Computed example of a mutant assay.
Amino acid sequence: MKTFLLFWAGALAAFPAAAQTIQSEEHAFRVVTLVRGLEQPWSLAFLPDGRMLVTEKAGRLRIVKDGKLDAQSVAGLPEVTVHGQGGLMDVALHPGFSKNRLVYISYAARGADGVGTEVARGRLTGHRLDDVQVIFRQSPKGNRGQHFGSRMVFDRQGYLYITLGDRGEMERAQRPDDHAGSVIRLHDDGRVPKDNPFVGKPGWKPDKYTLGNRNQQGAALHPRTGVLWTHEHGPQGGDEVNVIRAGANYGWPVITYGVNYGIGTKIGEGTAKPGMEQPIHKWVPSIAPSGMAFYTGDKFPKWRGDLFVGALRAELLVRLRLDGEKVLREERLLQGAVGRIRDVRAGPDGLIYLLTDESRAVLARLEPAG
């Protein structure tokens, strides 16, 4: 760990000078642009040597070193299908990456029944992924271009969680034999854990862990409890933050705080129903959340334990102050300052990293001011 932090400390000196100081409720900070010219980046992961991996929707896995974007992309990825909102999406490291070098990617892929989310893993060697294996294929796929998910998170026991959207066909989120609109839980090699909630239940996909989710594009482990939290897009309003529990039904499209696009009419049966989970926080109107991270570093001590959420439509960064599973307050930061925020990550250096979602996007970092 000490070597890891030394690499990061060395990298700090190479980054450009900071810009305007912003005063939040708790801290003064600056937004420093590290890399420009990314093409619709979706996710980033921190390598132990101080480099970063960044995905671009078009199917490129890029390396950032010492604040510079490597011109050579990582080779060896499976074929990525760019279809509507789908393409190359999340990237995550195996918990034992320092020994096994395993990198996981989620992406849209074409099959006989359309396009759907898949997850593959491979060993990072230089600028290449070797021994690539597909460990998850969404089934059935579909022809629409919306709601692929998908974030990946490893928990403290080494289980892999994959968040999926309803693929723009809302009724699929309630089907037991459909991956769409679910959280998936797997062993690191794609095997289904025997204690998954629907294992052995006739008609159910055994790798499903939840159902009733619309389109989850943020996921993170709570730093104290180790429980998975996600957020998901609502329709016109009704974006949600949820605490993920085995076998739980999160209601979509039976219950929602959103309404039909444009016409504003009711969806489903209302906002609550017995046997269906309530969000711990919601946004009406929608902010279009994407990317999520708990802050546990020491550079912003008054933010420790807070949850940070990026927003696409609202072009802002949301800070949620928590008390257990209760949201005490919300602060909105950077509104319109950096653009559509696609991903939010807490770095091993105690700083907060952002990716924007444009054709000429940036990787930026929040640093303390003063």
Rank of each mutant, 00 (worst) to 15 (best):
L6V: 08
E26R: 15
V32I: 09
T33R: 12
E39Y: 03
L47P: 13
L53D: 14
I63A: 02
K68Q: 12
A71S: 14
S73N: 01
S73A: 11
S73M: 00
L77I: 00
L77G: 00
E79H: 04
Q85F: 08
L88Y: 01
L93F: 05
N100E: 05
I105E: 07
R110Q: 15
G116L: 10
R121A: 13
G122E: 00
L129W: 03
D131C: 08
F136Q: 03
Q138L: 11
Q138S: 11
K141E: 08
M152K: 04
Y161F: 15
R172T: 05
P176L: 05
I184G: 02
D189W: 02
R191M: 08
G212A: 08
Q216C: 09
L221V: 15
H222F: 05
H222D: 13
T225I: 12
W229N: 10
W229F: 14
Q236E: 13
R245T: 15
G251H: 07
I263Q: 04
G268Y: 07
K273C: 05
Q278S: 10
I287L: 13
P289S: 12
F300C: 08
L307K: 15
V309C: 07
A311R: 03
L312V: 01
D323S: 13
G339F: 13
I341F: 01
D343F: 06
Y353T: 02
R360P: 06
A361N: 02
V362R: 02
V362S: 05
R365H: 01
R365F: 01
